[in-house]
């Protein structure tokens, strides 16, 4: 689905990201884990075409899209960030915003928004203002706002990190079921191993701007390499 070669993102002279090779298969749910400052969000921004890489090539279904930061290309993806960042309007309008930006007919917008509000069990909140929601409700709106776009690739940048445990567990279950039902290719960034074990088929460990290990989640966790063992074992010991 997405391939990246010799991807490099710099801020001035500082190298934020340097990834020789990366591949994401269609329908894959890839988890990206790493410590703070490892470059996880930078990686997502580069893959989602929100930031042009300083070097390297990104292919979408075999087509080089590195220099094609066009609207059409960007509109094939959706991103849900850590903070819900809802607009100053109702839940319905928040979920509808991406469809309206694409100038879809009003009736179609209405139908799609109603469907995804139902999917995320927030239909009753449709008329509520975004500012009056709880953290869990706001994150559901954020995810519905991304999924309503029916993206080819969904990017999730730590959307569960600020939620309390029961809310997080329920939302993880719901998003997993939705991703499976829709077979949406997903890149999921987190620094929480529990979330990743639950959601991701494959796991990539990003440290110091580079992917140190990639593979099926259970495999990476069972056999960390010399670069990732310290980081993974610290997490495993916490969970055990």
């Amino acid at each position: 689905m997405i391939t990246a070669k010799n991807l490099e993102v710099r801020a001035g002279k500082k190298v934020l990201l340097s990834i020789p090779h990366f591949e994401l298969q269609e329908g894959e749910v890839l988890g990206i884990m790493g410590p703070n400052g490892a470059g996880k969000s930078t990686f997502i921004k580069a893959l989602a075409l929100l930031e042009k890489p300083s070097q390297g090539t990104i292919f979408l279904k075999g087509k080089d899209i590195t220099n094609d930061l066009t609207l059409d290309m960007r509109r094939r993806f959706a991103v849900a960030m850590q903070q819900p960042l809802l607009l100053d309007t109702t839940v319905f309008q928040n979920v509808a915003v991406g469809l309206k930006l694409r100038k879809l007919p009003r009736q179609e917008v209405k139908q799609k928004v109603a469907y995804w509000l139902e999917k995320f069990q927030i239909s009753s909140l449709a008329k509520k203002h975004g500012a009056n929601l709880s953290g869990g409700e706001a994150q559901r709106v954020n995810l519905a706002r991304a999924m309503v776009l029916e993206p080819e690739v969904l990017f999730l940048d730590e959307p569960f990190s600020a939620l309390d445990f029961p809310t997080k567990v329920q939302l993880l279950k719901d998003i997993k079921s939705i991703i499976q039902q829709t077979n949406t290719t997903t890149v999921f960034v987190s620094h929480d191993l529990m979330e990743l074990k639950f959601l991701a088929d494959t796991l990539a460990i990003l440290m110091d701007g580079d992917l140190k290990q990639t593979g099926p989640t259970e495999e990476v966790l069972a056999s960390p390499n010399s670069s990732t063992s310290g980081f993974i074992n610290d997490w495993q010991s916490l969970l055990n």
Partner: peptide, 15 residues
Amino acid sequence: INPKLILQVKALGAT
């Protein structure tokens, strides 16, 4: 304005 909001609106497909 939170710079992340600008990025989020861009990610939603805004011109």
